[in-house]
């Protein structure tokens, strides 16, 4: 359908109020970047979901990384956006300033070279991520085993989407449709959302990250309100069954587990842990459940569940900003609070 027709429909929509959640942080970013909220009728509300892996990592996990980076002959390797995520008292960036050995990498595969060059250093990779990132960790493990590298372990905080979406729907979050995560769907396939769509009778639309693609998905969701339909608006990279090779690799090394989501608590079946036979590569990932708030007034939990907009948090912009994040949603560029602030969304 032509873009102008879609835009006209979405701007002039005057039916029942709809509340659509974009689960994925990259969609939150794209929605801001293309100015999409200004193209929608007041009856279409967008809610930013818990789909930023950094934002949902509990404080106990950060605290454990901080302990590890201060152990002798130990180096914590991480993606950059985890550096400023608050633990219960401080973040990795501060721990590094205090002499902790923390190294930022762009790809987990850099660990292979680092570990070989520094055989007396024990590397701990901060393996955070959703279905999209986990296959890379599987590849890393495969290489570690093949090359008999013994000085790399993973501290995992791996999450999977379907159980979390189920939890949101069951908890009464006011959502009438989901923009399903595009990158996750590349791996899982769009069919993974079918049981949820059926169970709750709400539509799912897999979307790409261009403005037109997001508008198409929104149009599909508004048109199909009340139906348990799964639509794929990202067919150039997403299939119904997904990337089965990646799925098999992940299943080889990881198994389903309960996982703690920052602000939301433990959700059964929403995480992955290393299988017992690969326990030697695990730096103690299970039971990192504590989730302390740095600032008691922080309302990241309600933001992540779509119950309030970031601007409704009393700390937003004043005490909490990207230079001084109080909650994880302000840290990552994919976090909803960060996105609302840098794009002046109201």
């Amino acid at each position: 359908m032509n873009l102008e027709t879609i835009k006209k429909y979405l701007k002039e929509y005057d039916g029942e109020e709809v509340a659509l959640m974009e689960v994925c942080g990259s969609h939150t970013g794209a929605i801001s970047k293309f100015g999409i909220p200004t193209l929608l009728s007041k009856k279409i509300r967008l809610i930013s979901g818990p789909g930023c892996p950094v934002c949902v990592t509990p404080s106990a996990y950060i605290d454990r990384l901080i302990e590890l980076c201060k152990e002798p002959d130990t180096c914590v390797a991480t993606f950059g956006d985890l550096m400023r995520v608050p633990g219960s008292e401080k973040n990795l960036s501060l721990a590094k300033g205090e002499g902790g050995n923390v190294r930022m990498v762009y790809s987990p595969m850099e660990l292979l070279t680092l570990a070989k060059e520094n055989p007396t250093t024990n590397y701990i990779f901060a393996a955070v991520g959703f279905e999209t990132t986990t296959p890379v960790y599987a590849l890393l493990l495969e290489s570690l085993i093949r090359e008999n590298i013994k000085n790399v372990k993973l501290l995992t905080a791996l999450k999977t989407m379907p159980a979390a979406i189920n939890w949101l729907c069951a908890s009464g979050a006011p959502i009438t449709g989901f923009i399903a995560p595009g990158h996750v769907s590349v791996i899982t396939g769009s069919d993974i959302f079918k049981p949820l769509a059926d169970k709750y009778g709400i539509p799912f639309a897999v979307a790409g990250f261009q403005g037109e693609e997001i508008l198409e998905a929104l149009y599909g969701l508004v048109k199909c309100q009340g139906s348990g339909k799964v639509m794929n608006f990202y067919p150039k990279v997403v299939t119904a069954e997904g990337n089965t090779v990646a799925q098999k690799k992940v299943a080889t090394y990881f198994e389903e587990s309960s996982a703690v989501w920052r602000g939301m608590g433990a959700i059964e079946g929403s995480g992955l842990l290393l299988r017992k036979e690969y326990a030697e590569f695990d730096a103690g990932s299970a039971d990192l459940n504590e989730d302390k708030k740095l600032n008691k007034a922080c309302r990241c939990d309600q933001v992540l569940m779509g119950k309030i907009s970031p601007t409704e948090c009393p700390l937003f912009r004043k005490v909490c900003n990207p230079m001084n994040p109080q909650g994880a949603c302000m840290v990552s560029e994919e976090g909803s609070c960060h996105q609302y602030l840098v794009n002046n969304r109201r």
Binding site: L3, K7, G35, P37, P322, L341
Partner: peptide
């Protein structure tokens, strides 16, 4: 304010971080 390529209006802030 910036009118985006698809006609939305985006408010731009100074660089953060």
């Amino acid at each position: 304010w910036m009118e985006t390529a698809i006609g939305g209006i985006r408010s731009l802030e100074i660089l953060q971080g």
